[in-house]
Design a protein around this nucleic acid. Structure first.
Lengths: 189, 189
DNA sequence: GTGTATGCCTAATATGCTTAGGCAAGTGCC
DNA sequence: GGCACTTGCCTAAGCATATTAGGCATACAC
């Protein structure tokens, strides 16, 4: 019997691909076993559980997303940085819908703390260096930007903006314009 | 054998309660059957499927949410309306986390079209009457507000703002202030 | 009171998750 | 090359959920 050559990394990667193809909720150990033409139980040498698999895919997605955002941010500032960062986010979600869903998977607190989640907040804060905000207003702004990006991408993925004018791309552009204007004229408390 | 007195409405309502107590993903026909001390198969006279159950809970939540938002909006305008509407949204999500999750359940297009989803967009548009935006800027603003509200509530529910200063309530207030300022000074295209 | 509709049941099938224990393919040592 | 040992994948079995088919008894209509 030829061995399939399973490993945790290969399984997680295949799981991420499966998520993008069929949706994160279709990611099951059974589906993964079928994909490798292997019996389900065989995966349990490499994965602790179904939840373990999902957690690892989520961590992968968070990492990839942070990498992309970091690359987008490099060498940019102000509105340019804002746009590049936001686009990195949105593009990732459009190219990898399943992975993006995975990134929204509820991790347990300690896993979340060790994840790339912190980098995301850090980068959002970096964008704000191009604007003139004091603490704690900066934190409020970080939270607002995170909300808009996540909320928009999520609603767009849900098809919220698909069958109506104007184009989603146009709204996205205008919203980023508006956010830039807002950050430049952030109201005093 | 005493009959349990099942009905679609009772099941949906119990499902919504179960969602709030244990999370929307814990809502299963099996769990619901246990709750009524009845065999699982018995539910299938009242529900087409597990997905049917979830869909109905989602529609209930969308309806309740729209009702609350409408009540909040009544007799208000401008920033006052913005705050009341946003708070209705956030409060509902905090009081009924499972129902709120349900409201985010991906409905098939035709069900979505017949849902209370349209009322939500309509009300958001009504808020904007208090500001001076032309079409299509108004649509962009509707989408932005939807994104912020949904995004913030979602991140808050995920615990994103819980273990860090400043207080989530404070950020929420400041973000609404900022949105009001933005809508009053919406940048030209 | 009898007839009938219907509410809940038993039974059976399918999919998915998980653990326990076995065999054989690969690895290291002589 | 032959040996022991590790380990990768297997069979087997148990448990939960979803769903359908068909049965019996309760509740209501007349």
């Amino acid at each position: 019997m030829v061995r399939a050559g399973l490993s945790t990394e290969r399984l997680v990667l295949a799981g991420a691909e499966l998520a993008d193809e069929a949706g994160f909720d279709q990611v099951t150990v059974s589906a993964l076993a079928r994909r490798f033409d292997v019996k389900v139980a065989s995966l349990y040498s490499h994965l602790k559980s179904s939840r373990d698999l999902k957690t690892r895919i989520a961590l992968l997605a968070l990492e990839e997303l942070a990498d992309r955002a970091a690359e987008a941010l490099a060498g940019r500032a102000g509105k340019d940085a804002l746009r590049a960062f936001a686009d990195a986010y949105r593009d990732y979600a459009r190219e990898h819908p399943g992975r993006y869903q995975a990134a929204r998977f509820r991790l347990d607190p300690e896993t979340a703390a060790a994840s790339a989640g912190g980098r995301h907040a850090q980068m959002t804060r970096a964008i704000l260096r191009g604007y003139d905000l004091t603490e704690p207003e900066q934190t409020h702004a970080v939270r607002m930007l995170g909300s808009v990006f996540h909320g928009y991408v999520d609603l767009e993925a849900a098809g919220g903006f698909s069958h109506s004018a104007p184009d989603s791309q146009e709204s996205w552009t205008r919203i980023l314009d508006a956010l830039d204007a807002l950050l430049r004229a952030w109201p005093a408390p």
